[in-house]
Design a protein around this nucleic acid. Structure first.
Lengths: 321, 321
DNA sequence: AAAAATTCTGCAAACCGTTGCACAAGGGCT
DNA sequence: AGCCCTTGTGCAACGGTTTGCAGAATTTTT
């Protein structure tokens, strides 16, 4: 194993000079610095991060915390893309991505605490934004840096990255009404009252108003209630859903009564392969990978100031595909 | 920050004694060991893993490598469950889960190499089993321990965990023919020729033979070919698919010609929420979380011998839900 | 030419554990 | 009493890197 001592010896300098040269310390002359860096690169020297971490008192790792319950099945592909985006940023910084994932909140907290206490991990990304979250509380109390995915509790002003759900709602609805020529849309949401659903609905409502169209809305849940709703609204000729699953579920119920085909649906966050439905399914792409990127950049913004000054939050735009 | 020196001082012993006591070294008397462990626990002492790793020359981390292509959407929920299973085992061992995930094979390899060289990670789990995989080659060449999820290349005898796909195929087919009383089943698979699909098909074929039923099979792909297939086989009264997506896609095409309802489908690895289809959808559960558990146990089997001797591979049974 | 200021480099300690080796204490044996 | 063996403990070095401080070398100033 090649150590910094070997490099120092080959370069004919002391270990401390080598160390400083490799870390671009301005106290080492430009010439020496370059010479040593070239040498190190040529020899294939790579620093031992365990040693680095020991002296730094901080690990070169970012903790990524998954929500406890997998309930949110629809979000799964989203998580993977987030991981991609985050890791792409981390490798550049010679950081490693460590995940905390557990069945219960208790275990999860222990997992995170151990990362902090034993592993000296000082930076985290939370894959959820809950109110009164014990993990977030703990991190705040320890004065550790973290970014949440999704807009968190307003009262602490934590760092977060979120979609611009309002704009995405506006964009999706405009596409549905304008491009797909839908006259009698229905907005379909889950029965969870999630914040992002409200925001998307608000966007939809605004566009509906602009197009002079009735902003019909249906919340999923008890099937017969939904069926009754559909019976009452035979005029529906297009669906805007908060995600693919909700959209397709509503469509299935709709087709129990009316024989339609190639029916226009606009949803968010494409999470299903084509070919699963004969609907004319469009999706507002929310770029989870970009969210991962942005979250990481924000997480390191204490060291590496952001290009554009931002107030501790980033909103990712959307696109329709 | 509480260090081992503090504990040693409070206990009135030397640092080395404290270290040995905490690591259950038999050279320290039972009495002293217990006394020091109690004290450490009471004081809330937690060892610094960066220091431990430095002396050990190995990090307390397992690298989890995702396949490059995200396209494999169907498998996503599976990955999350795997992570769960793995992490549950790791926390017990005071290990951390580090992921490597990248868009391109090149970057992924670099990612892994950096984990090894800089991070001193010595154990890996691969979330795929490809032939001639550069990552696996690299790990073998470095004599590092790794376990693949799914049965790998036979010629190297790597460690792996896989489903018992043959048995699962038998189980699923039996359920379809016996419980759901299907007389004219069709086995639907993707056009990727994946190994697990062959194995499941083999199970299906055996059961078909036993039930004296024609082992009809259809490979997805070009839609009109599939439609023609369906036209030729109006007798089909049940589907066995290699995953939910394939099953539902075939079902959709089927319904273009025949108006069926509550149609029996048996697939594998439930990855869709109910409510998306009106088919009578059953799934053979392959317990990805258990696979994660097993993979981890296998990964550490050099230190912690397995309860039941196994030949470097574990097969996870299935259940039908 | 000498002094001062500036720039560059090296020594050694520090980070926090583990571990080889030596030594001390205690017991049993002849 | 003297010796050996066993058991328990401590000293000090080690792992690979960073960094405060001091000293050497070079340049600038007077």
């Amino acid at each position: 194993m090649l150590t910094i001592r070997d490099i120092a010896a080959k370069a004919g300098v002391s270990v401390s000079t080598a160390s400083r040269a490799l870390n671009n310390n301005p106290r080492i002359s430009q010439a020496t610095r370059e010479r040593i860096q070239k040498l190190a690169a040529a020899e294939g020297y790579l620093p031992n991060y365990n040693a680095k971490n020991l002296t730094a008192g901080e690990a070169n790792a970012v903790g990524v915390v998954f929500p406890t319950t997998a309930h949110t099945v629809p979000e799964n592909p989203f998580y993977i893309d987030l991981l991609r985006g985050i890791n792409a940023q981390l490798v550049q910084r010679h950081y490693v991505l460590s995940v905390a994932i557990s069945a219960t909140a208790d275990e999860l907290l222990k997992n995170v605490q151990s990362m902090v206490a034993q592993g000296k991990i000082k930076r985290f990304i939370l894959f959820y934004a809950h109110e009164d979250d014990p993990i977030a509380d703990y991190l705040r109390q320890q004065h550790l840096r973290f970014v949440t995915i999704g807009q968190p509790d307003q009262q602490h002003n934590d760092l977060f990255v979120d979609n611009d759900n309002l704009q995405a709602g506006i964009g999706g609805a405009t596409f549905l009404l304008d491009q797909l020529h839908v006259k009698h849309p229905v907005f379909v949401e889950s029965d969870h009252d999630w914040a992002y659903e409200h925001q998307r609905r608000e966007g939809y409502a605004r566009v509906a108003a602009r197009f002079n169209v009735n902003p019909l809305t249906c919340k999923l849940g008890e099937l017969n209630r939904v069926r009754a709703f559909i019976k009452r609204h035979p005029e529906i000729d297009g669906i805007m859903a908060t995600d693919d699953f909700n959209g397709i579920e509503f469509y299935r119920l709709l087709r129990e009564t009316v024989a339609v085909n190639h029916f226009p649906i606009v949803s968010f966050n494409r999470s299903l392969p084509a070919g699963l439905t004969d609907a004319d399914l469009h999706s507002v792409d929310l770029f989870p990978e970009k969210m991962g990127n942005a979250a990481t950049v924000l997480l390191f913004s204490d060291r590496e100031p952001l290009a554009t000054p931002t107030p501790g939050q980033i909103r990712i735009p959307y696109a329709i595909g």
